[in-house]
Computed example of a mutant assay.
Amino acid sequence: MTDTLLVRLKPYDPRRGFVLRRFTYAGIRFHDERGWYRVERKVGEHLRAVRTVPTDKYAPLAFDVCTEAEAKALDAGESEAAKVKRSATDDLKVTTARGAVTTDDLPKNTSPASAPPTAKDDDAGSKRGKRERE
């Protein structure tokens, strides 16, 4: 089995540029949702250089090409990343609700210093003269 490699189309993620959902090479049709395929080494070496956009040398690579040990490590890393969400069986702390704060909850302060400023009459304190109509 040392003359084989495991290959898979990278999972569909247009944000990262992984836009291929299927690809055919040497009579083998690769689907992204199927996962890993075991192929001959020469096929794997060719697929290692395939890009998502064939004419763009800066486009991301379309395939993950690995040995069996590398593929297992890659799968294990992805499954750990997928377990970020908390489950019901985890030891979770109680999250207390804060509730809504309304104006009734604010402290009542009647001192004159805390009173809101009053609006001045625009005509009384205005230093600029009004324009005359022509």
Rank of each mutant, 00 (worst) to 15 (best):
M1N: 08
T2E: 05
D3M: 12
D3T: 15
L6S: 01
V7A: 00
L9K: 01
D13W: 03
R15L: 08
R15W: 04
R15S: 09
F18G: 02
F18E: 04
V19R: 02
L20E: 03
R21N: 08
F23K: 02
T24Q: 06
H31C: 06
R34A: 12
W36P: 01
R38L: 10
R38K: 11
R38H: 07
E40L: 15
R41K: 14
L47R: 00
L47E: 00
R48K: 10
V53T: 10
T55S: 11
P60Y: 01
L61A: 03
F63Y: 03
C66T: 06
E68Q: 12
E68L: 13
A69V: 15
A69N: 15
A71K: 01
L74P: 03
A76P: 05
E78I: 13
E78Y: 13
S79D: 08
E80H: 11
A81W: 12
A81T: 13
A82D: 12
K83S: 04
K83W: 13
K85S: 10
R86C: 14
T89W: 14
D90M: 04
D91F: 15
K93E: 09
T95N: 11
T96A: 10
A97L: 12
A100G: 08
T103C: 09
D104L: 08
L106D: 05
P107I: 01
K108P: 03
N109C: 11
A113N: 05
S114F: 15
P116A: 12
P117G: 03
P117R: 09
T118I: 13
K120T: 05
K120D: 05
D122A: 15
D122R: 14
D123L: 15
A124K: 15
A124S: 11
S126T: 07
K127N: 15
R131L: 15
